[in-house]
Design a protein around this nucleic acid. Structure first.
Length: 853
RNA sequence: GCCUCGGUGGCGGAAUUGGUAGACGCGCCGGAUUCAAAAUCCGGUUCUGGCAACAGAGUGAGAGUUCGAGUCUCUCCCGAGGCACCA
């Protein structure tokens, strides 16, 4: 029996779609538009399974929406600037541009072999000056609009390599290549004022009703609005005051210390001539800039000897510490510690033997007896030990303390956000040059617009550590556009999130001479469905939301929210394998022997199987999609991506799963290539009489279309696949029943249309094999007949005390009397009743009868 | 450490609003076909006891609400993603 020849078929249909320009689109005001976008890939070298999943999901949505009559924009491009190109340049001596462009060429071919419905004419790569030149103009506009500014900020510094390190390149406090202890260094850098939009970005989350709830929550928490007070404390023996932000000013009577960040200006001032403090700050700085590292480090403090004067309690002072857990970026970089009601403060107090004074007690507690053990008391209650606050609950106490502090000029109510401004400067070569010039006399001078673009030079060398632009002799040296004297070009480049914050708009008009063509952007934007990894839930998506607002402010486009719908996909996982020495093994290095044990493919040797984890190069648990596509075809890979797990969950890659998908495809192919009955010709009308079995399948066809529509609309793709398989099973039953020929053909044609967006190649092949005209890629989605969706009888469960005892068939919407009668007649129910009468019978029409005894 | 999500058979997962737990697929077991194998087809498959009819248990652990809980509430355990310079 003939196997489906995917090699021949897939290449042929890909060519047909291309020759007929099936997926080329333009603005058409008469049709509803639908913009489907998958997060564009970083050209790392070859596509991985995560890409296959992402683009399979997007392609399904795009083809489905097209079949439903939408004018679908579905573009693809390359997020082409970034660190890996520089790492490759250093490791293999390849220019980043060559490395990137070669990767793009490879990956484009790989994507094309998947049969994705992209309008390839819109392809773009962010590393080409035709793209990045526009963001240089945007930056100049942001400067004019007050959305960009320069300030000093901290970076990880590798003292051996004299290089700035990304957090990723800091491993256990050391540089990944040099092994040197990392230091923090202060540099002047460019920032975008995302904090101006904190409230707006937070409020607008409510309008994103087609985003996953968890992403909305994560963004809201990231923005982190909190209402509190900015307090101003006098410092004993000094003129200046210490500013502190707190959301719990009501606990001020329980304050027993204050702490400032190691990077607080006061800490730096005090460290002058204080060796102990200087060393402590250096130690804190060795933690690097990552918040996770700082927050998980052991909490430590250094007593500065300064005393902070309590604003309410006469004679009372609080010791001032420098503490490694106080972040300069949040609030004012200083806190007051109330150990009784904050766990971190309590741990700190216990460690340094500071007082713990409870100031809030549970309502029913005896205030005189209440004390704090090893757990801070965080709940509401009544204030104690707090003079004018005593007896108040937290809310009232907050109001009272705020009024008093404002009266005496020691503080004011303030809303604080956790969100920090976006630092966009990177001390790297492979990125978009920041279009400014540094002049000794004029300071920072923007590059005049007529001099744009500032092109990234190609003749650079990675012989020396650091940013090659810093040692490029001619590119860097320019005349000041303002005074004409010799000056230096800015050698920092933009964060690559800059490129990914507007590419979705550029896809609407990729060839436009201006950054954005308003007419095209107005027609296509917003993106109706954005699809990508959950790892981008906060940063990329939040930056894009801000950037769109910034572009709106500067007149580039006319909307605030770029993504109306969002679907986040889970990751691809695979079992991990290690040899006897603990070395990771590729799946291909491992085989199952005759006893079912896993051994080394190269010979005998034990293999330890680890649990399934996210596919990663470091653990070698990767499967190359190209090999899978070559061995099984794109449709098989696509089906597997859709069938096993729902899109937002992690997916386990298994060889058995791909085999199962391949078997199904062959089964489908046999159903058209080797029918056992004479099928009616294409388009034949339904016969007047259909036998019972066939009629049941005919109804199932309609029911399946309706159900699949619902599943696809809600992204329950795995359920849609399951339903289509069920329908396939039912149709196959008719395969040798002559009287069912019409329904067989009708069912099969419907199945073909339903699988079209999932497995586009075999759908076309089957459609053509059956003698039909047209392309599935261009045919409308099947309709269904509403009247065939409901059956006259339903099977309902019969329970006794909530435990299922059996089922009964009953006419739809039967009344309670009828349902009770059949339920009570069930032998197992009679048994349970033991001759007695039920206490009560609960009946939910078309669902259950529950007999309570 | 903080924010977020998840945990259901041997495995991936189904289960509108609280209403038949295990759809569909994988794997496994048995059978057909075959000289044999692959492929294909048929049947079975949550666990425990039983030849069976059937009985009992069962959705990470423990408690609670309810006629009824995978679904709601509380406490706990485990895993994953993010934490601002990986993309």
């Amino acid at each position: 029996m003939a196997r489906y020849n995917f090699r021949n078929s897939e290449a042929r249909w890909q060519k047909t779609w291309q020759d007929k320009n099936c997926f080329k689109v333009s603005e058409d005001p008469d049709r509803p538009k639908y913009y489907v976008l998958e997060m564009f890939p970083y050209p790392s070298g070859r596509i991985h399974m995560g890409h296959v999943r992402n683009y399979t999901l997007g392609d399904l949505v795009a083809r489905y929406k097209k079949a439903r009559g939408f004018n679908v924009l579905h573009p693809m491009g390359w997020d082409a600037f970034g660190l890996p190109a520089e790492n490759a340049a250093i490791a293999n001596n390849v220019p980043p541009a060559d490395w990137t462009r070669e990767n793009i060429a490879t990956m484009r071919d790989q994507l094309k072999s998947m049969g994705l419905s992209y309008d390839w004419d819109r392809e773009l790569a962010t590393c080409e000056q035709g793209y990045y030149r526009h963001e240089q103009k945007m930056f100049l506009d942001f400067l004019k609009a007050g959305l960009a500014y320069r300030k000093e900020s901290w970076v990880n510094w590798d003292p051996i390599e004299s290089t700035v390190l990304a957090n990723e390149q800091v491993i256990d406090g050391r540089g990944w290549r040099s092994g040197a202890l990392v230091e923090k260094k202060r540099l002047a850098q460019w920032f975008l004022k995302i904090s101006d939009y904190s409230e707006e970005l937070l409020q607008a989350i409510d309008t994103l009703d087609r985003w996953p709830e968890r992403v909305r929550l994560m963004q809201a928490n990231w923005i982190g609005r909190s209402e509190g007070m900015r307090l101003e404390f006098n410092i004993k023996g000094r003129e200046d005051r210490l500013e502190v932000f707190s959301t719990r000013a009501d606990t001020l009577y329980g304050a027993t210390f204050c702490a400032i960040s190691p990077n607080h200006p006061l800490a730096e001032e005090l460290s002058d001539g204080n060796d102990g403090l200087t060393e402590f700050i250096a130690e804190c700085n060795r933690l690097g800039t990552s918040e996770a590292a700082i927050e998980t480090a052991e909490k430590k403090g250094f007593d500065t000897g300064l005393e902070i004067i309590h604003p309410f309690i006469e004679e009372k002072t609080l010791p001032l510490y420098v503490a490694n857990f106080v972040l300069m970026e949040y609030g004012t970089g200083a806190i007051f510690g109330c150990p009784g009601h904050d766990q971190r403060d309590l741990d700190f107090a216990r460690k340094y033997d500071l007082d713990v004074i409870p100031v809030v007690a549970p309502k029913d507690a005896d205030a005189a007896e209440f004390s704090i053990g090893n757990e801070a008391y965080l709940e509401d209650g009544i204030h104690i030990n707090s003079e004018f606050l005593d007896g108040l609950n937290i809310t009232d106490a907050k109001a009272a303390v705020a009024d008093r502090l404002e009266d005496i000029g020691c503080g004011r109510r303030e809303i604080n956000y956790r969100l920090r401004d976006w630092g966009v400067s990177r001390q790297r070569y492979w990125g978009c040059p920041i279009p400014v010039i540094n002049c000794d006399d004029c300071g920072v001078v923007p590059v005049p617009e007529q001099d744009l673009p500032v092109e990234l030079p190609m003749d650079v060398s990675f012989d020396q550590p650091g940013n090659p632009l810093d040692h490029h002799p001619t590119w860097k040296d320019v005349d000041c556009p303002s005074c004409g004297k010799p000056a230096r070009r800015e050698t920092d480049t933009f964060d690559t999130f800059f490129e990914s914050s507007w590419y979705f708009a550029r896809f609407c008009c990729p060839q436009s001479a201006e950054a954005l063509d308003r007419a095209a952007v107005d027609y296509w934007m917003p993106v109706d469905q954005y699809i990508g990894g959950i790892e981008h839930a906060v940063l990329h998506l939040l930056y894009s939301r801000f950037f769109t607002r910034a572009l709106e402010k500067c007149g580039y486009l006319g909307l605030a929210e770029p993504f109306a719908g969002l679907m986040t996909q889970g990751m691809i996982c695979h079992e991990t394998y290690q040899d006897q020495d603990g070395r990771w093994l590729f799946p291909d290095d491992v085989v199952k022997n005759d006893d079912g044990k896993f051994v080394l493919a190269s010979g005998v040797g034990d293999v330890t199987i680890g649990r399934s984890e996210k596919m990663s190069k470091s653990k070698k648990n990767v499967v190359d999609p190209e090999l899978i596509i070559k061995e099984y075809g794109a449709d098989t890979a696509r089906l597997f991506m859709l069938s096993d797990s729902p899109p937002d969950r992690d997916l386990d890659w298994t060889e058995a799963g791909i085999e199962g998908a391949w078997r199904y495809i062959n089964r489908l192919w046999r159903m058209v290539s080797e029918p056992k009955i004479e099928m009616p010709v294409s388009g034949a009308p339904m016969p007047a009489e259909i036998d019972d079995v066939a009629e049941k399948v005919r109804r199932l066809v309609h029911q399946t279309v309706a159900a699949v529509n619902g599943d696809l609309d809600r992204f329950h793709f795995n359920k849609a696949v399951a339903r289509i398989r069920e329908l396939t099973n039912a149709i196959e039953e008719l395969r040798d029943q002559d009287g069912a020929a019409w329904v067989y053909r009708f069912g099969l044609e419907t199945v073909i249309k339903l699988i079209g967006p999932m497995m586009p190649h075999i759908a076309e092949e089957m459609w053509a094999e059956m003698g039909n005209d047209g392309l599935i890629a261009e045919l409308p989605w099947p309709d269904y007949d509403e009247s065939l969706l409901v059956e006259d009888t339903v099977t309902i469960a019969v329970q006794v005390n909530g435990k299922t005892k059996g089922t009964v068939d009953i006419s739809r919407d039967a009344d309670q009397e009828a349902a009770e009668a059949v339920a009570l007649a069930l032998p197992s129910v009679e048994n349970s009743l033991n001759g007695g009468a039920p206490r009560k019978v609960i009946y939910v029409p078309n669902r259950i009868v529950n007999v309570v005894v």
